[in-house]
């Protein structure tokens, strides 16, 4: 249970960073921390105490392996996270060239 609570704490730190900070790079960092927390939570749910990695060996049966499905899903999610981070950073670099700042309250050309 302690592991779940620490994982939730990590997610809350990321959420605080996204909602409270005004620098775009800080917001990207907060999104990254939230993504780490979600990936970690999936793998934590699939962990079995004293289990072994889901790779077949001589003495390997169902009862002594950890759950492989969350690991497969998270493997997909990690790579997508990299692509999304690259996209956000590209947009941030363009905004910096256009406005000369990373402050989100100064970037208000589209604001009604």
């Amino acid at each position: 249970m302690t592991e779940y609570i620490l994982c939730l704490a990590l997610f809350c730190i990321g959420l605080y960073c996204v909602l409270r900070k005004r620098n775009i790079i800080k917001i990207i960092i907060g999104l990254g921390i939230m993504e780490y927390a979600v990936n970690l939570f999936f793998v934590l749910v699939g962990y079995k105490t004293g289990g072994r990695a889901p790779i077949l060996a001589k003495d390997q049966v169902v009862s002594n392996m950890v759950d492989p499905i969350p690991q497969a899903l998270v493997l997909t999610s990690i790579v997508i996270g990299l692509a999304v981070t690259a996209l956000i950073v590209a947009i941030a670099i363009r905004l910096f060239e256009r406005y000369g700042t990373f402050d989100i309250t100064k970037i208000r050309r589209l604001k009604g």
Partner: peptide, 30 residues
Amino acid sequence: LKAPDLAITQLVVEILCLIILIRATINKDL
């Protein structure tokens, strides 16, 4: 947590992510 594939992928992705973020932050006074 007994997920070696994920550990390797996370290591590679983390290093790439760091390079991208440093490219965005370097030489910009804020």
